[in-house]
């Protein structure tokens, strides 16, 4: 009614529409990405300027660049590097030299993320079960180590730990107010960055996360007044979709035949790309109505025979 009268503000309309589309997301039957990797796909990302090119790095040592608009594909080959160093090194992309070295972790750092709100704020998760926040401007860079139990111990206390086991994923929310972390204790936690406290959002027991590799949850774009969703790849070859704030499980996306290793969000079309260790990249898209109608016409009808 409001829509018909045109009194819904465009922003609200957009938000609602977006939320609905995200809720509708499912495995896209029509588009598929050609299988190029001959090893597991470890990470994927979509470039931000155009939202058009998809990069994927595979265990076979190749990086593939896909053009999502047409099926053209370029290939570059680099040598994959891995580090088991307990320090975080910052590289200057212009000079290619190490500029900073942040020390404080006592285990391998598996995951880092920059805050979208403060450009000097960095979060890192490590095998020593801690999640640390860094201010790279300072020499004594570590701001605090997040604590699971919200105890009153000092922020850099040795006793603080964010998870009970290895932390392999940290992710800022798009507004930079919260931090999502996930670890091998099969838990995902949401931290309030103003207070540095655990929000105690309970995401249930469905998550399976046991592999020592970077596994970053994906957070859908935030907007006021509509729920934000977080997509967490689970080891049982599915992607779990939670409501970010109240932690309820919204949907379980199944269909991948390999462990999902990375997720990427394509903002323009609200699509999710998932990389699996079955060498495949899958496209998850909201159901498009006209397309559905055409396809489902065959499959939809029941074919009970009269004799039954």
């Amino acid at each position: 009614m409001q829509m018909e009268l045109g009194i819904v503000r465009p922003a609200v309309f957009q938000r609602r529409y977006l939320a609905r589309r995200i809720l509708d997301i499912t495995l896209d039957p029509s588009t598929s990405i050609q299988r190029e990797h001959v090893g597991a796909v470890n990470t994927i990302d979509i470039e931000e300027a155009e939202g058009r090119y998809l990069l994927s790095g595979g265990g076979d040592g190749n990086i593939h660049v896909y053009d999502l608009e047409d099926s053209e594909r370029k290939e570059r080959r680099i040598i994959k590097t891995a580090s088991a160093d307990p320090r975080i090194r910052l590289c200057d992309l212009k000079s290619g030299a190490f500029t900073h070295s942040l020390s404080g972790h006592r285990g391998t750092v598996l995951s880092v993320d920059w805050s979208p709100r403060h450009e000097y704020l960095l979060a890192s998760g490590s095998t020593d079960t801690t999640v640390r926040l860094w201010d790279i401007r300072k020499s004594a860079a570590c701001l605090c180590s997040l604590d699971l139990h919200n105890s009153n111990s000092p922020p850099l206390s040795e006793a603080n730990s964010a998870h009970t086991r290895t932390v392999n994923g940290v992710m800022f929310t798009p507004d930079g107010l919260h931090l999502v972390t996930t670890g091998h204790d099969d838990k995902m936690r949401l931290w309030d960055l103003y207070t540095g406290q655990n929000t105690l959002a309970n995401y249930g027991t469905m998550i399976r996360n046991q592999f020592v590799s970077n596994l970053t949850p994906l957070i859908s774009p935030m907007s006021m007044g509509s729920p934000t969703f977080v997509f967490h790849p689970s080891d049982d070859r599915s992607i779990l979709m939670f409501d970010l704030m109240d932690g309820s499980l919204v949907k379980r996306l199944t269909g991948s035949y390999g462990r999902v290793t990375a997720l990427a969000w394509r903002p323009r079309t609200q699509e999710i790309y998932s990389a699996g260790n079955d060498h495949d990249i899958l496209v998850w898209a909201p159901k498009s109505v006209d397309h559905e109608n055409a396809l489902k016409a065959i499959a939809d009808q029941d074919t009970w025979s009269d004799s039954d």
């Binding site: 495995l27 039957p29 269909g255 035949y257 495949d280 899958l282 396809l295 489902k296 499959a299």
Partner: peptide, 14 residues
């Protein structure tokens, strides 16, 4: 049904 149910197509491919 491969065109409609992607999972089956993926399973087949797998």
């Amino acid at each position: 049904y491969g065109a409609v149910y992607k999972q089956i197509a993926l399973g087949y491919e797998f």
